[in-house]
Simulated scan of single mutants.
Amino acid sequence: MKDFITAAVFSYPHEIAILRHLLTEAGINFYFENETITAIAPLYSHALGGIKLKVHTNDLDTVKEILKNLEDSNNLKIV
Results as ranks from 00 to 15, higher is better:
S11C: 10
D72N: 15
V63N: 10
A7G: 00
A41G: 00
D59E: 13
A7D: 02
A7R: 03
D72A: 15
E15W: 02
R20T: 13
N74E: 14
T36K: 09
G27R: 03
I40F: 06
D72T: 08
L76Q: 13
D59F: 13
T24R: 07
T6A: 10
I28V: 14
N75R: 12
L43Y: 00
A47H: 05
I66H: 11
A8H: 12
I18L: 11
G50K: 03
L48G: 00
L76W: 11
L60I: 14
E33K: 10
A47L: 06
I40C: 06
S73G: 10
K64S: 04
T24S: 07
L48M: 03
D59W: 10
I51P: 04
P13K: 08
T57M: 09
L70N: 15
R20H: 08
V55P: 12
I66F: 10
L70Q: 15
H14P: 00
I51T: 08
L23R: 04
G49V: 01
I78K: 14
N69R: 15
Y44I: 00
S45A: 10
Y12H: 08
F10K: 02
K77R: 15
L22W: 07
H14S: 01
D3G: 02
R20Y: 02
K52A: 02
L67N: 10
D3R: 12
I5M: 03
L43H: 02
G27P: 04
A47T: 02
K64R: 14
K2L: 05
K64Q: 12
S11R: 13
I66R: 12
L48N: 00
F30P: 03
L70G: 14
P42L: 06
L60T: 09
K52G: 01
E35A: 03
V55C: 08
A17M: 08
A41T: 06
V55N: 04
L23V: 05
D61S: 15
L43G: 00
A7W: 01
L53W: 09
H14R: 08
Y12N: 04
E65N: 14
H56R: 13
Y31P: 01
Y12T: 06
S11D: 12
K64V: 03
L22V: 03
S45I: 06
V55Y: 07
Y31T: 06
R20E: 11
T57C: 08
S11G: 11
T24K: 08
L23F: 06
A7C: 01
L70P: 07
V79H: 09
T36E: 04
